[in-house]
């Protein structure tokens, strides 16, 4: 049985840990709020970008052949398995956030195993970078410290590299695996195609042309040229959105993980305190018995 001093030391150490997890939870909560604001702030841009792209794709359907757009008549799926695939795996830069990183990594490995033409990974975030380097997975590259200063420029740079590799025919498709932010309590691992841009993606679920899209617009320059200018922006924005989602999800996951760690530490402290009090009382009882039996022996 542990001595009283040992127990006291143990309790103190658990209390320290609890303070750290509590602080981490509060930091994650503050960062989560900022990340959520950032996502909300992109909404107006996202809506308008989608509206105009959908409209243009509907108007210029058939005439437009852009390397980033899947060929018409559902050609996108036919090409699956025809070549290598690039997978963007988005993990966090840090651990201590539950199964956040592990889920993405597992999903990425599962999907990679199913790719016909083989694939390469572009690992975004320290965690994924370490994991896949260690595993010896086929890597195109890694990006570390991405989330320390997440900006639109980061997404632009990534989009430029990925789009170029795709247009040059290095890959036949580009996918992203990331944690989607659903709510503070739940994140969903999502597997999503970034390139080629599916026609359904840009023409909307009802096939575009509905409602106000019928308006006669004046185009300057031509529809096709505007669309060509727009599609790379569309890709950049998709990547930016994926990074923001993952960032928010990471903070949410860390918050939940640290909250339960704090709770667990509390339970552990209670249990240890009980044990401490019990052994203290047992010690006192033993001493009393010793004193009493000593006195009895003297009298006898």
């Amino acid at each position: 049985m542990a001595s009283l001093i040992d127990l006291r030391r143990r309790i103190r150490s658990v209390k320290n840990t609890q303070q750290i997890t509590k602080a981490m939870k509060m930091v994650a909560a503050a960062k989560l709020r900022r990340a959520q604001d950032q996502i909300l702030a992109t909404r107006p841009y996202a809506l308008e970008l989608r509206k105009v792209t959908e409209h243009l794709a509907a108007v210029a359907a058939g005439e437009v052949e852009h390397p980033l757009l899947s060929p018409p008549e559902g050609g996108g799926d036919e090409r699956a398995g025809a070549g290598r695939t690039l997978v963007l795996v988005v993990t966090g830069d840090k651990g201590l956030c539950g199964a956040f990183n592990a889920h993405v990594q597992r999903r990425a490995e599962q999907e990679m195993a199913q790719l016909n033409g083989g694939g390469e990974i572009l690992a975004l975030g320290n965690r994924g970078a370490d994991f896949f380097t260690h595993r010896g997975a086929p890597l195109r590259g890694v990006r570390r410290g991405l989330f320390r200063e997440l900006s639109y420029a980061t997404a632009q740079e990534l989009a430029a590299e990925v789009s170029k590799a795709f247009s040059d025919g290095e890959y036949h498709a580009v996918y992203a695996v990331y944690n989607e932010f659903i709510s503070v309590l739940s994140q969903r691992v999502t597997w999503e195609r970034l390139l080629p841009i599916a026609r359904e993606d840009v023409t909307g679920p009802e096939g575009g042309g509905a409602g106000e899209s019928h308006r006669d617009y004046l185009y300057e320059p031509s529809e096709a040229e505007i669309l060509n200018d727009l599609l790379p922006r569309f890709v950049t924005f998709q990547i930016y959105r994926v990074l923001l989602e993952s960032q928010a999800a990471e903070h949410a996951a860390r918050m939940t993980a640290m909250d339960s760690a704090t709770k667990n530490a509390g339970e552990l402290i209670d249990a240890l305190t009980l044990q401490y009090n019990r052994s203290r009382q047992a010690e006192i009882t033993t001493e009393l018995i010793e004193v009493v039996s000593g006195a009895n022996a003297l009298e006898g």
Binding site: H55, R215, Y217, E220, P221, I226, L230
Partner: peptide, 16 residues
């Protein structure tokens, strides 16, 4: 393709 001035009542337009 050049600067544009937009006044109320302008026709619908999409431009880069």
């Amino acid at each position: 393709k050049g600067d544009m001035g937009i006044l109320p009542g302008h026709t619908a337009l999409i431009s880069t």
